[in-house]
Protein backbone atom coordinates (compact mmCIF):
# COMPACT_ATOMS: atom_id res chain seq x y z
CA UNK A 1 0.00 0.00 0.00
CA UNK A 2 1.28 3.44 -0.93
CA UNK A 3 0.56 6.77 0.62
CA UNK A 4 0.73 10.31 -0.74
CA UNK A 5 0.86 13.32 1.50
CA UNK A 6 -0.74 16.61 0.44
CA UNK A 7 -0.09 19.75 2.45
CA UNK A 8 -2.17 22.91 2.09
CA UNK A 9 -1.40 26.29 3.67
CA UNK A 10 -3.32 29.58 3.78
CA UNK A 11 -1.88 32.01 1.22
CA UNK A 12 0.71 34.39 2.72
CA UNK A 13 -1.48 37.44 2.04
CA UNK A 14 -4.52 35.87 3.74
CA UNK A 15 -4.74 36.52 7.46
CA UNK A 16 -4.84 33.24 9.36
CA UNK A 17 -7.09 33.78 12.41
CA UNK A 18 -6.39 30.29 13.77
CA UNK A 19 -2.62 30.76 13.56
CA UNK A 20 -2.96 34.12 15.28
CA UNK A 21 -4.89 32.56 18.15
CA UNK A 22 -2.19 29.90 18.56
CA UNK A 23 0.71 32.37 18.53
CA UNK A 24 -1.00 34.43 21.23
CA UNK A 25 -1.22 31.38 23.49
CA UNK A 26 2.40 30.20 23.14
CA UNK A 27 4.08 32.84 25.36
CA UNK A 28 1.67 31.99 28.18
CA UNK A 29 3.26 28.52 28.22
CA UNK A 30 6.77 29.94 28.21
CA UNK A 31 7.38 29.59 24.46
CA UNK A 32 8.53 33.14 23.87
CA UNK A 33 10.75 32.44 20.88
CA UNK A 34 7.94 31.92 18.32
CA UNK A 35 6.88 35.15 16.67
CA UNK A 36 4.38 33.78 14.18
CA UNK A 37 2.22 30.70 13.55
CA UNK A 38 0.35 29.71 10.43
CA UNK A 39 -1.99 26.75 10.52
CA UNK A 40 -2.45 24.53 7.47
CA UNK A 41 -3.81 21.11 6.63
CA UNK A 42 -2.23 17.75 5.85
CA UNK A 43 -3.99 15.00 3.91
CA UNK A 44 -2.78 11.41 3.50
CA UNK A 45 -4.12 9.66 0.40
CA UNK A 46 -3.83 5.88 0.32
CA UNK A 47 -3.59 3.75 -2.80
CA UNK A 48 -3.59 -0.05 -3.24
CA UNK A 49 -0.27 -0.43 -5.11
CA UNK A 50 2.87 1.64 -5.44
CA UNK A 51 2.90 5.41 -5.76
CA UNK A 52 3.54 5.90 -9.47
CA UNK A 53 3.95 9.16 -11.38
CA UNK A 54 0.32 8.78 -12.49
CA UNK A 55 -0.80 8.48 -8.86
CA UNK A 56 1.18 11.61 -7.95
CA UNK A 57 -0.32 13.48 -10.91
CA UNK A 58 -3.83 12.48 -9.81
CA UNK A 59 -3.02 13.56 -6.24
CA UNK A 60 -1.86 16.93 -7.54
CA UNK A 61 -5.10 17.35 -9.48
CA UNK A 62 -7.19 16.36 -6.44
CA UNK A 63 -5.18 18.82 -4.35
CA UNK A 64 -5.93 21.69 -6.72
CA UNK A 65 -9.63 20.91 -7.29
CA UNK A 66 -10.98 19.64 -3.97
CA UNK A 67 -8.39 19.63 -1.18
CA UNK A 68 -7.54 23.31 -1.54
CA UNK A 69 -9.31 26.49 -2.58
CA UNK A 70 -6.84 28.43 -4.76
CA UNK A 71 -8.47 31.73 -3.76
CA UNK A 72 -7.29 31.42 -0.17
CA UNK A 73 -4.84 28.47 -0.05
CA UNK A 74 -1.69 27.12 -1.69
CA UNK A 75 -0.80 23.47 -2.16
CA UNK A 76 2.73 23.44 -0.74
CA UNK A 77 3.57 19.75 -0.97
CA UNK A 78 2.45 16.63 -2.86
CA UNK A 79 4.81 13.72 -2.21
CA UNK A 80 4.97 10.01 -1.50
CA UNK A 81 5.32 9.11 2.16
CA UNK A 82 8.24 6.71 2.24
CA UNK A 83 9.30 6.32 5.85
CA UNK A 84 7.40 4.71 8.69
CA UNK A 85 8.38 7.67 10.84
CA UNK A 86 6.54 10.12 8.64
CA UNK A 87 3.38 8.07 8.22
CA UNK A 88 0.98 8.77 11.03
CA UNK A 89 -0.88 5.47 10.88
Amino acid sequence: MGRVVVEVMPKPEILDPQGKAVVRQLPRLGFTQFTGVRQGRRFELEVDGPVTDAVLAAAREAAETLLSNPVIEDVVRVAEVTTEAEATA
Binding site: P10, I14, L15, P17, Q18, A21, N69, V71, I72
Partner: peptide, 8 residues
Protein backbone atom coordinates in the same frame (compact mmCIF):
# COMPACT_ATOMS: atom_id res chain seq x y z
CA UNK B 1 -14.04 33.14 -0.32
CA UNK B 2 -15.00 33.06 3.35
CA UNK B 3 -12.52 32.24 6.12
CA UNK B 4 -12.98 32.07 9.89
CA UNK B 5 -14.24 35.23 11.60
CA UNK B 6 -11.26 37.38 12.63
CA UNK B 7 -12.19 37.01 16.33
CA UNK B 8 -12.69 33.21 15.94
Amino acid sequence: SMIKNDHL
